[in-house]
Design a protein around this nucleic acid. Structure first.
Lengths: 344, 344
DNA sequence: AAAATTTATGCAATCGGTTACATTTTTCAT
DNA sequence: ATGAAAAATGTAACCGATTGCATAAATTTT
């Protein structure tokens, strides 16, 4: 059917040509210490000459491992996730693992399907960040039961199996709110997403605590729980515009959404930061190219990915005792730009 | 070592329990017509009960196929690429193919390494978009020699093997330039990237042609070939600011870069679009949240991905004659927003 | 009821590395 | 030189699903 120009070379072909056994060839290619270095050299040379490529399926079948790590994220098209992936990729490539990446598009249903798929693909380990509406971790049970190590990052469940890599969202939420208060804000609106997710719930807690510490009464009407897409941002902006008593500060847990809101408020004549001071979250590149530039929380994505991957691999090696390093907290940082600073 | 709670179930386990042969079980699970439907039912029920999962490695080894498609992109963190991936994913998932995604980070070296890796992973087919500085397609030769179908999208080589899915970049470049001319621009600067890439070379040709058709003299100094990162944009903006005779229009082949440039020009007091009208390329979401909103070319990413994937799969099925559908051109569209419109 | 079909199932080889356990070859001390 | 230890290579079973080619069972035809 196909123009299958040449069939594949196997270790048997190499063995035959050199009058050796397949076992020796296999060992030589794996740099096994028992093989004479001259023999190794001969074998490797012939292998490259013939364009030999090892058959992973045969190898995986025999060894019962895949050397593949599954990554399950809520979204691909985000600067933060991309950087986490970059970090993961760096570490896993070095350790000679492959990556199988799946995105759940913020849907629990798709997350479950992807988890099942990755389980069936027999990944050796899994790195995951939960979608908006994931209710429980039942779909990860098969991994746990089979002893496949599991690491969650960013969006995690407090009481789950497996290690977690997170930032201190409470602290970050606190810092941002305190910063806005320092700028003179008295009515700070908080725009966030599903409180099922630790990241949003913790930031809200931080927000509340900062208000309390500054003797500002918490007002339920100033907390908006919504999506973080463009349409959600527009909706929130319109809601603000309709308010009789407008906020004088906004802490929005996502840079893109913050940018959308800011843009819409500006179009209606509201001045940022004079009328409303705004802070976002994530330190997305776009924050630097809008006017005014956006105050935000920097989130070390690459580092998070590296740590998660390194941790997972050390489990796979058996060099770390499973489930004993349970939670790793990475430092985040408040970045202050013009969108929130009032030269009082 | 691990808490390997339970070993894996194989077709042999199922066969034994039902007093059948492994062959029958295998066929039943594949819904082979020769198997009695009652037998099939029994087998399938037991399979789910036992939590059977097929071993892909055994299957792939035997069948000599992987049911995996490689995707080689120049960058992951881009709205355009994400949407292409979404399109590819949709089609391949339906057809029951897996995806192996690799990014070259705009480096030919990494692209070559990735191509080799995907070849060794024995993908059944490859979908690729070239990096900035790829000089030739030698690293794809192994695929061609082995009869592995190859499809390029967006960034392609004119005279390569394999099918191509592209937009009409000449036309898009022409349209954008003509639009700027219609707004009264006489000195239009064109900011673009490596002319090795068809997308940029073709857009430049379109730009030149539009100038010619409007009897505007082409000026080499008005074409900037650079990267499209933030730092490149800043550089270009500074160059414009230094120019004695500034342009009155700019056609920048990337929305993000356009946004960076626009922002920097505005900070120095240049009015957009009154002093300089600006058009970008790609219809990135960010174009709508900056002020003024950005005129751009819409690029149908999802569709491109779908078409590329569908094409590839039809090759793999053998339902399409190889290399006869050679080039597919998808429609792109000029989207006019405030960054370029002068109410003359 | 015997023969011819049709339908359903089984046998056994195969895919290509890996590895426990021989076996052979080399090196070295006595 | 001779036996013991070390180094190098070989043998063969194995991983689990697939499939061409029998064979057996059920159904239809004559």
């Amino acid at each position: 059917m196909k123009t299958d120009s040449r069939a594949d070379i196997t270790i048997y072909d190499i063995a035959r040509q050199l009058n050796l056994s397949a076992a020796t060839v296999s060992r030589a290619l794996k740099d096994h210490p028992a093989i004479n270095s001259k023999t190794k050299k001969k074998i490797n040379e012939l292998a490259t000459e013939l364009g030999y490529r090892s058959n992973n399926f045969a190898s995986n079948l025999r060894r019962g491992r895949t050397n593949t790590i599954g990554v399950l994220v809520h979204e691909l098209n985000s600067g933060f996730i991309s950087s986490v992936l970059a970090g993961i990729e760096k570490v896993t490539t070095e350790a000679n693992y492959d990556l199988l990446i799946a995105q759940s598009s913020e849907s629990a249903k798709k997350e479950i399907a992807n988890a099942n798929n990755l389980f069936h693909k027999r990944v050796d380990g899994l790195i995951a960040s939960l979608s908006f509406d994931t209710e429980n971790l039942a779909h990860f049970d098969p991994f746990v039961k089979k002893g496949i190590p599991l690491i969650f990052f960013d969006r995690v469940f407090e009481d789950s199996e497996g290690a977690k890599v997170v930032i201190d969202n409470f602290r970050a939420g606190y810092d941002m709110t305190q910063h806005l208060i320092n700028q003179g804000c008295k009515r700070i609106m908080h725009v966030t997403a599903s409180l099922k997710r630790n990241v949003y719930a913790d930031r809200l807690r931080g927000y509340k605590q900062a208000l309390a510490d500054n003797s500002i009464k918490y007002d339920d009407d100033l907390v908006v729980v919504n999506g973080l897409e463009e349409s959600d941002g527009i909706e929130t902006a319109q809601r603000v515009l309709r308010m009789k008593k407008k906020p004088d500060g906004m802490f929005i847990t996502n840079d893109f959404c913050a940018a959308v809101i800011m843009h819409h408020l500006q179009e209606e004549g509201i001045r940022i930061p004079e009328d409303i001071a705004i802070g976002g979250f994530n330190n997305d590149v776009m924050g630097k190219i809008i006017s005014p530039r956006l105050t935000t929380i920097d989130y070390p994505g690459v580092q998070m990915g590296e740590i998660a991957a390194r941790n997972l691999i050390s489990h796979l090696d058996g060099s770390a005792t499973l489930a004993h390093t349970n939670k790793i907290i990475i430092k985040s940082e408040l970045i202050i730009r013009e969108s929130s600073v009032r030269n009082s």
